[in-house]
Design a protein around this nucleic acid. Structure first.
Length: 573
RNA sequence: UGGGGCGUAGCCAAGCGGUAAGGCAGCGGAUUUUGAUUCCGCGAUGCGGAGGUUCGAAUCCUCCCGCCCCAGCCA
């Protein structure tokens, strides 16, 4: 379970923290209640994992790592109507990618169907479960409301023999879907609605991805989850807050059944992120209705999407560490995630130059046909990353944003008459502007100072800005995709009307970008920083002649902040 | 108006009767061939509110207020 690339200096402090769950585990170990901590991450294979799951994965696997225990990966595959093998595969891939290893401990709730069935019969024999013939509507009507107790089912008093017979015939497939259910006999008047005779088994004539057509009845989550934990000797069954009032039911099964261990359930607050929806239902619709290109669309908060966007697993772990674990509902600013991404990528990404929106520059006093190879550092804070050569010539491209004809007071970049440094190259001064027929700036005429080669002036004069550039003839064309928040509202509704909150600018495609030759290797999957712009990675849509880069996250931009105080983050750059 | 939870700075979050950690964001400043990074400094006489217990309360008690979850044969 060890990870090689654990965050070092600068990342969140890696003491195991003191959240309430770690405190409980620590105490259980100290008092000897348990010898070893055993947790599990229990996804239902009905969708892809997202960053909210990452919180749970890091918690469960992290606990096991920190306290020398183990963590299982168990699929809660009790509802064949929604589940698929594709999701089982994707989930395993994503957990591994996040940096965790379940070793031999891969399980499926469906592995336990036979045992669960046997326990259901035990409950019947003990007079604690019965077959109910009521329709779904009748059951609902008799469940009562939040303030009124429910009414007992007319079938609640059936004999053990009759219940056993009926339940066996349910298993045998003698009844159609919905005809009967097996219910626990607990308390129809309980203030906790989960205790009003919850459904244990329902009839579902549906093939299961793993058990095929062997079963015609499937256990409910409540009946499967705790017992599965017990079978695996899970010590701490960690789930989210909405299961808090299932805990009495969880404990009821553990008490009344002859289970091999007694797990305890603890609940923590799930992750909420601004400008993000983490509802599997909505994410599934985004994919199915084509609002995004797939589960791995770089705009998606799925692990597959984040990975494709270029977010390192380490950044997600760093983020999760920073947000902590508690019971208070909270809404984390998406900027926190951006911070963790930059934090990791700043250390890791090699620097390169790329011009996203090119503006041609002709250096009038630079000889035609001449090419120089200038040396540039691959990482400003890490000499061991080495250097590369960048070709310089008479015709260049610079970023359109780096030139303004009528610059405001605090604009230090290029403007008519001003001098700037071309990074790792020369000082240049703008001497003229060439326009097209529409009057738009089409080209800049500049003069360079040959004495400033490499970027330093022997006379000690300073420039106020350094801008990036590429040689027109030597640079390569590329497509650059700017990934912006999928939702424009800070707190999207997440309801059926989710589409109204979608950010129309979530994806900006820049078709005319130019990248320096060092970026030519199309097999290089390493993250890079396009200097002064952000962190990027190659998208799988790349073709050898047509590289495509995703902007993982932009660099902090205090100048932009200065210009547009309180801008709209959904708008992007 | 039933049951279960939760309220500490703009956002996360420590704190467990001894006098409010840390991070993100923000704001200053230093360094800088990325307006990046890095570094330094700044924020609660106050912990949802009101009472009470105590030498001492964010921590204990009482009442009140606010927010979240639960009425699937989903998980």
């Amino acid at each position: 379970m060890a990870r090689e690339d654990t965050a070092s200096g600068g990342t969140a402090q890696d003491d195991s923290g003191h959240d309430f769950i770690r405190d409980i585990v620590r105490a259980d170990l100290e008092t000897g209640r348990i010898k070893q901590v055993i947790t599990r991450f229990p996804p239902e294979p009905n969708g892809y994992l997202h960053i909210g799951h990452a919180k749970s994965i890091c918690l469960n696997f992290g606990l096991a790592e920190e306290f020398g225990g183990r963590c299982h990966l168990r699929f809660d595959d009790t509802n064949p109507a929604k589940e698929a093998q594709e999701y089982v595969d994707a989930i395993q891939r994503d957990v591994r990618w996040l940096g965790f290893d379940w070793g031999e401990h891969l399980y499926f709730a469906s592995d336990y169907f036979e045992q669960l069935y046997a326990w259901a019969e035990d409950l019947i024999r003990a007079g604690l479960a019965y077959v109910d013939d009521q329709s779904q509507e009748e059951i609902r009507a008799n469940r009562g409301t939040l303030t009124e107790p429910g009414r007992d089912s007319p079938y609640r008093g059936r004999s053990v023999a009759e219940n056993l017979d009926l339940f066996r015939r349910m298993r045998a497939g003698e009844f159609p879907n919905g005809a009967r259910v097996l219910r626990a006999k607990i308390d129809m008047a309980s203030g906790n609605i989960n205790l009003r005779d919850p459904v244990l088994y329902r009839i579902l004539h549906l093939p299961h991805p793993r058990t095929g057509t062997a079963w015609k009845i499937y256990p409910s989550y409540d009946f499967a989850h705790g017992q599965s934990d017990a079978i695996e000797h899970v010590t701490h069954s960690i789930c989210t807050l909405e299961f808090e009032d299932h805990r009495p039911l969880y404990d009821w099964f553990i008490e009344h059944l002859d289970v091999p261990s007694r797990p305890r359930q603890y609940e923590f607050a799930r992750l909420n992120l601004t400008h993000t929806v983490l509802s599997k239902r909505v994410l599934t619709r985004l994919v199915q209705e084509g609002h995004v290109t797939g589960w791995d669309d770089p705009r998606m908060p799925t692990l597959a999407g984040l990975r494709r966007r270029g977010v390192p697993a380490e950044a997600i772990r760093d983020f999760v560490k920073r947000i902590g674990v508690a019971k208070a509902n909270s809404l984390v600013d998406i900027g926190m995630l951006d911070f963790s991404i930059r934090n990791v990528l700043n250390r890791r990404a090699l620097r390169r130059m790329a011009v996203l929106r090119p503006l041609k520059v002709v250096i009038e006093n630079y000889p035609e046909g001449k090419v120089e190879e200038l040396e540039a550092a691959n990482h400003p804070d890490d000499a061991s990353a080495g250097v590369r050569k960048i070709p310089f010539s008479r015709e260049l491209y610079i970023e359109r944003d780096d030139f303004m004809e009528q610059p405001p007071k605090k604009f230090f970049r290029l403007s008519p008459g001003s001098e700037v440094r071309l990074r790792y190259a020369y000082f240049i001064r703008c001497t003229g502007v060439v326009r097209n027929s529409a009057g738009e700036v089409e080209e800049l005429r500049c003069r360079y100072d040959p004495a400033t080669r490499g970027g330093n002036a022997p006379d000690g004069r300073k420039v106020r800005a350094t801008i990036h550039w590429v040689s027109a003839a030597h640079s390569l064309p590329a497509e650059v995709r700017l990934i912006n928040p999928l939702f424009r509202t800070p707190v999207p509704s997440g309801g059926d009307d989710f589409a109204a909150d979608l950010n129309p600018h979530s994806l900006e495609v820049l078709g005319g970008a130019r990248i320096e030759p060092a970026l030519a290797d199309s097999s290089d999957a390493a993250p890079v920083q396009f200097e002064r712009q952000g962190y990027f990675c190659r998208d799988p849509d790349s073709r050898p002649d047509r590289p495509v880069f995703n902007r993982t996250v932009g660099l902090r931009d205090s100048f932009a902040k200065e210009l547009a105080k309180g801008g709209d983050p959904a708008q992007g750059a």
